[in-house]
């Protein structure tokens, strides 16, 4: 029986949601190739994590009781050893910041290809076909490779695995070369705090790169005032220092679910969409008809924000 090995993500005592989605993706791939689904959970309270990861479709959970938090050296060495022992055809990890900090090294050491940020997967036993986006989500591509591979999966693309499984849960004792651990985590910091919590807002007026200049933000503030709404933004606005980090919607910022989300000059990169696609009603104002935001919007105005935003503000004055 060949194997698919899925390595869970956790942080500060909590399994991340994508870990349960990883089980669904892993089970489907294991079914494609007639393999068992093995799950590894490395560091932290592994017995507790293993009980939670034992969901429908999981054949085995390997617990690795070594350290507390993510250490890419430990994850790399352990995953390589376990994949080798199981003769895993596919190693699956989340396409998270931590996933991208060790999955490429695992592929490199196993001398197999890596395909990242996948949104769909299928295999005929030898050939893997992976769907992923290119050009900031403007196109979807299918890439193929043959033989074993390391694959990272995008969050919120597969449903979370449910139910209670009957996996064998066993400890795996890796042979860690401690001299090779050259990166040490010394702490964590929350950086998106402050007086405004955009995740509490009912209406968000959210601004992106299309605003061009810092002084143009005034248009956005005027609209938000008129609508009694809160101003949020996509990443480039915060990167430029035009708004503080606590206004950023997206993967590295806040996840928001307002009643109305008005995306102004936001293209809708996947990292942004991850933070707002749960909004009840999404309105996009954008000149680009092919911008990915148009694919998730309920209503769209395909026009220049510098014309539409003042006109909208006027409607409420």
């Amino acid at each position: 029986m060949s194997a698919v090995l899925a390595v869970a993500d956790h942080r500060r005592g909590e399994l991340r949601d994508v870990s349960y989605e990883l089980l669904t993706a892993g089970r489907a791939l294991a079914d494609d190739v007639g393999a068992d689904l093995h799950v590894a959970v490395i560091s932290g309270t592994v017995d507790d994590f293993a009980a939670k990861l034992d969901r429908d479709g999981v054949d085995a959970v390997h617990t690795v009781d070594y350290g507390e938090e993510f250490d890419h050296g430990v994850y790399t060495q352990t995953t390589v050893q376990l994949a080798t022992e199981l003769e895993a055809q596919y190693v699956l990890t989340p396409n998270s910041v931590n996933g991208l900090d060790y999955a490429p090294a695992v592929a490199s050491r196993l001398d197999v290809p890596i395909v990242t940020d996948t949104v769909a997967l299928e295999s005929d036993g030898d050939e893997l076909r992976a769907t992923r986006e290119m050009y900031g989500g403007k196109v979807e591509t299918t890439v193929s490779l043959s033989g074993p591979a390391v694959v990272t999966i995008r969050g919120a693309e597969w449903p979370a695995a449910e139910g209670t499984g009957d996996a064998t849960i066993e400890a795996f004792d890796p042979d860690i070369d401690e001299d090779a651990l050259g990166a040490t985590v010394t702490g964590f910091e929350e950086v998106a705090g402050g007086d405004v919590d955009i995740s509490d807002a009912d209406v968000l007026v959210s601004v992106g790169r299309g605003i061009d200049e810092e002084e143009n933000l005034e248009l956005i503030h005027e609209l938000a005032d008129a609508l009694e709404a809160t101003v949020s933004s996509s990443r480039p606005i915060v990167d430029s220092g035009w708004l503080p980090k606590n206004r950023q919607v997206g993967q590295s910022g806040k996840v928001v679910t307002p009643d109305v989300y008005i995306a102004i000059g936001i293209s809708g990169a996947v990292q942004h969409v991850a933070g707002m696609k749960g909004s009840e009603t999404i309105v996009a104002i954008n000149t680009d008809p092919n911008a990915p935001i148009m694919d998730i919007a309920d209503y769209a105005i395909q026009d220049d924000l510098f014309d539409v935003v003042p006109a909208l503000t006027e409607q409420f004055q």
């Binding site: 942080r11 964590f188 910091e189 929350e190 950086v191 606590n246 590295s252 806040k254």
Partner: peptide, 8 residues
């Protein structure tokens, strides 16, 4: 990292 957390 995700969600407004940085790792040192």
């Amino acid at each position: 990292l995700e969600g407004g957390v940085e790792e040192l």
